[in-house]
């Protein structure tokens, strides 16, 4: 009896080990990793080149105060609070782009407002605290080398006057 109890217990534990079942085929399996910590990824380097060239000349930049920020944003829709996977791109500490996110192992999508729209970054490399993304637009390739950071978010504008 003791052994059967042990077996049933082990079965339950092992079944619990498969809890990631629900995540694997999700459209956002990578989002929890992106949003880990304070959800910021510093842009360490940006390379741009013409992808139609076999041996392209690449321009390289090391931007300052530029990073991606990923977090859950709550929104009230028809009286119900829903959480949206949200992403922002800050260039020189100023918000440059923001959208809901779809994040999979192979690509990150900054979703647009209508079908067929949005900005896609293909993931070229991925490790625990670094990633390389590639964005292609009109044959122009832009590669972003990212590093997990604790980047400080710019302060929100002071709209309360106190007057």
């Amino acid at each position: 009896m003791k052994q059967i109890t042990l077996l049933l217990l082990s079965t339950s534990i092992l079944t619990g080990c498969f809890k990631q079942f629900s995540d694997i085929n999700d459209d956002n399996e990578l989002f929890p990793k992106l949003a880990q910590g304070n959800g910021t990824w510093e842009i360490v380097e940006v390379e741009t080149w013409d992808a139609t060239s076999v041996d392209p000349v690449k321009e390289t930049l090391q931007p300052k105060d530029s990073f991606f920020h990923f977090y859950l944003r709550s929104k009230i829709v028809s009286g119900t609070v829903i959480d949206l996977n949200y992403g922002e791109l800050f260039i020189n500490n100023k918000i440059f782009e923001e959208a809901t996110i779809s994040a999979q192992s192979e690509r990150i999508i900054f979703e647009g407002n209508f079908v067929g729209s949005g900005k896609i970054y293909s993931i070229e490399e991925r490790s625990h605290n670094a990633m390389v993304w590639l964005h292609m637009e009109n044959n122009k390739a832009t590669r972003y080398s990212l590093k997990k950071c604790q980047c400080i978010l710019p302060e929100t504008s002071k709209v309360e006057t106190g007057g």
């Binding site: 498969f18 079942f21 694997i24 085929n25 080149w49 992808a51 139609t52 060239s53 076999v54 041996d55 392209p56 192979e106 690509r107 067929g116 949005g118 896609i120 293909s122 590639l134 964005h135 292609m136 637009e137 044959n139 390739a141």
Partner: peptide, 22 residues
């Protein structure tokens, strides 16, 4: 239980692969 995936990339002459919606 099986999770299957086909990732279809476009390849450019510089050998970069991407998933853009073009």
């Amino acid at each position: 239980w099986n999770w299957t995936r086909m990732v279809s990339y476009y390849i450019y002459p510089d050998k970069s692969r991407n998933l853009s919606h073009e």
